[in-house]
Design a protein around this nucleic acid. Structure first.
Length: 755
DNA sequence: GTAGGGTTAG
């Protein structure tokens, strides 16, 4: 293949695309010897520095410039800068004019070097110099532009050369253009060019429809993507790349089932999955917690002759550790080692973090002890501390950290071998975070604070999260002054407080009913663009009202409006309720009407509050009027219809949404008070199965705990044990609850165990 | 890596 003709050859697209435009020309052994001499001289002059246009040798050589010489010389430079300098120099020589092959040679070099600016200029030069080109050469240049994302330039070039009669684009040129546009995600433009192509009488082929599929996938136009795929499929044009595009999109959209169906279809038409597709799918499935599917694919991948690399092992092992399938994770770990792949620190720390006991920890550490550097040991120490902390041994983790700080050995942790490592193991920020965060959760605030001070001592970098967590805990302990000090220190150290930092303090001020302090902070928050959380404002209003300070509560609400933070219906409801409880019925009504006039739509709860208050004040007529108003507005008296809620809940899950703990707890309590323990149990089981369980500090924890004990006492859910399912709920440390349930056809026994 | 707030019995 001659270097100056290879552009006209039809290039194959898709996976071969990168290779084909970036492949360097063949060597010049096929060129006549005089040309070889000239090119060699140019190359040596331009690579010898400093380059000077006045170089007499160069001036002598200039008349020998031809397009063939320039193209060959360009493809022999190692640096795009030198190539560009030569290209520009050549452009300025009298008697010489670039042709499309020299332009394209330069374009290819610039595109490979990702040099957008000079490539843009080059594309414009091609047009300005009225350079003729074949449809293939146009396609080549378009693809260079497309690979740098210069879609607008590609479109402009295409139209200009067509209009000026420099080229009559054919279907290949159109395919190149479609490929370039598809990267931008502009479906409109793709559809427009497709129509244009059709109007010119050009037919479609695989390389036309592949970018069309790509653009629909990129822009999430599911239906259109599918119909394009079907067209490709029906024409028998499906290849690995087409499947790759669609499978990747399904995976990205979380449609793992559809991706699986597609794989089966793919196998039916004898198209193999390529390595890239395998890797991507495995990542996608693990991300969606579909370890079963990921494992299947992993096996298939190996059977297809692809050797998984460390990153695939890493993601598989990580996924298995997450779903607590330690046996399988360890199996893969061994397989990995046997196949000669060295488990890296990522794999090791995932395995370590999922260890259940310290014996296992030590075993794993011993196995992988050789050739570890200091940083690796620190990361592993951190994993060990995570295990200790998750097992409830914060004290041991604390001791380990202290030993790291002092460079000592501590025999009682069971991981003393860590300290037989070549000397000191330095703790990093994450070492401190693991221990400090857990001390805070355990209420050991002062110990956490002293560790935080140690961090400064040994010069370990602090971070926003640590500051936030400490400030949050101080605020929760009503240690407001210290939290202000920490905030000051945080700002002085160059850390920008987040809305969480400010809201922690705002919460504390609200808890203290410090209205002035709260308003002052709100002003500061406004300057930072931080929104105060309504739960705090509402709490303040409630407590003020409870103490008879209804006027202050209303003043606070209007001050918040002044500061630009409009309270929501919930805060207003709290205030109305407070006014009513303090016999300020008229003020409550006034507030109610005011907020309606300001465009708020009071909800059922707000109406309930007012209706109840008016009834209590013997103002029955007004109360009935409000009730009618409420029904007129279509508001149904309250959300005791858990079965209707369950329908929404099911839809929600089908749509792929993950209900959070509040939704579960709402359903649980509703079914229980609706005397439907069977459904309550079903929801409980689902909740636990999905790893959703409230933290002991969460107020939902108490609700769930009560639900469980009620279920265990209920006669409908009495003991009929045929099948035992053990669910170990993390955080369920101090209580033992047993639940037995007899669901027709599904007999289960759940035992929530303590540690 | 931070929403979860307001009513309702006795």
């Amino acid at each position: 293949m001659k270097p100056y003709t290879h552009f006209t050859k039809t290039l194959s697209f898709s996976s071969k695309f990168q290779r084909s435009i970036f492949t360097k020309s063949q060597n010049d052994s096929t060129l006549p010897s005089d040309i070889v001499n000239v090119t060699d001289e140019f190359i040596s002059i331009f690579t010898i520095r400093p380059f000077s246009p006045n170089n007499p040798e160069l001036i002598n050589l200039a008349p020998k410039l031809t397009n063939k010489v320039v193209e060959t010389v360009l493809n022999n430079f190692k640096s795009w800068r030198v190539a560009h300098a030569f290209f520009i120099w050549a452009s300025n020589q009298s008697g010489y004019k670039h042709n499309i092959y020299t332009y394209n040679a330069m374009a290819s070099i610039l595109s490979r070097a990702r040099q957008n600016a000079p490539l843009k200029v080059l594309a414009q030069d091609v047009v300005n110099s009225r350079c003729f080109m074949s449809p293939g050469a146009l396609g080549f240049l378009i693809r260079c532009l497309g690979s740098l994302g210069l879609v607008e330039e590609a479109n402009m070039l295409f139209d200009q050369v067509k209009m000026m009669g420099l080229c009559v684009p054919n279907s290949y040129s159109y395919n190149c253009l479609l490929e370039a546009i598809s990267k931008s995600g502009s479906t409109d433009l793709v559809e427009m060019r497709l129509k244009e192509m059709h109007d010119h009488g050009w037919g479609y082929d695989k390389y036309t429809l592949t970018p069309v599929l790509q653009v629909y996938c990129n822009s999430g136009e599911f239906e259109k993507a599918l119909s394009t795929f079907n067209e490709i499929y029906n024409q028998g044009w499906v290849d690995e790349h087409v499947f790759y595009i669609l499978v990747m999109s399904f995976t990205k959209w979380g449609e793992v089932e559809k991706a699986c169906e597609l794989i089966e279809r793919m196998e039916d038409c004898n198209v193999r999955l390529n390595e890239k597709t395998f890797c991507m799918l495995i990542h996608g499935f693990v991300k969606e917690s579909r370890i079963d599917k990921a494992l299947q694919l992993f096996d298939k991948m190996k059977k297809s002759g692809f050797a998984p690399d460390v990153s695939i092992y890493d993601v598989m092992i990580g996924g298995l550790c997450k779903t607590r399938e330690r046996e399988k994770a360890l199996q893969l770990y061994l397989e990995m080692k046997e196949s000669g792949k060295k488990p890296d620190v990522g794999v090791l720390s995932k395995l370590l973090s999922s260890c259940c006991d310290e014996g296992e920890l030590t075993h794993l550490l011993k196995e992988s002890w050789d050739e570890m550097d200091a940083q690796t040991v620190t990361v592993l120490c951190n994993s060990v501390m995570s295990v200790l902390v998750n097992n409830g041994s914060v004290d041991k983790a604390y001791n380990l950290l202290q030993a790291m700080i002092r460079g000592e050995t501590i025999p009682n942790v069971g991981v003393e071998m860590l300290f037989n490592f070549k000397g000191k193991v330095f703790p990093n920020t994450s070492s401190f975070s693991i221990v400090i965060d857990n001390l805070l959760q355990d209420g050991k605030l002062d110990l956490a604070l002293s560790l935080f001070r140690d961090m400064i001592q040994i010069g370990c970098k602090q971070n926003v999260l640590l500051y936030n967590n400490l400030i949050y805990s101080l605020c929760n302990s009503n240690r407001l002054e210290e939290s202000y000090e920490l905030l000051k220190e945080m700002e002085q150290s160059g850390f920008e407080p987040t809305h969480f930092t400010h809201n922690s303090i705002f919460g504390c001020l609200c808890m203290r009913q410090d209205v002035l302090g709260a308003l002052n902070l709100v002003r500061k928050m406004r300057a930072h663009g931080h929104e105060p959380w309504t739960k705090h404002s509402t709490l303040l209003i409630k407590s003020l009202c409870k103490n008879g300070k209804v006027v202050d509560a209303c003043k606070f609400l209007s001050d918040m409006v002044q500061e630009g933070f409009l309270p929501d219906t919930i805060s207003y409801s709290a205030a109305m309720n407070g006014l009513l409880n303090n016999q300020e019925v008229d003020l409550a009504l006034e507030l109610f009407h005011n907020i309606c006039a300001s465009g708020y739509c009071p909800d059922v709860v707000a109406y309930n509050i007012m209706i109840k208050g008016l009834c209590k004040a013997q103002r029955i007529a007004e109360s009935e009027q409000l009730l009618n108003e409420m029904i007129m507005k279509g508001l149904i008296p309250s959300c005791g219809r858990p079965k209707a809620a369950l329908v929404h809940f099911r839809t929600m899950k089908q749509e792929g949404m993950k209900p959070d703990i509040f939704v579960y707890v709402a359903l649980l309590s509703a079914f229980l008070s609706d005397l439907n323990p069977l459904l309550a149990f079903e929801i409980l089981k689902e909740m636990v199965d999905e790893g959703n369980f409230p933290d002991p500090v969460d107020k939902n924890y108490v609700v769930v705990r009560d639900v469980i004990s009620k279920l265990s006492e209920d006669t409908q859910t009495a003991l009929h044990e045929t099948l035992s399912v053990w669910i170990d709920v993390p955080g369920f440390k101090k209580h033992i609850f047993s639940v037995w349930i007899d669901v027709p056809g599904l007999k289960k026994h759940i035992l929530l165990v303590s540690e």
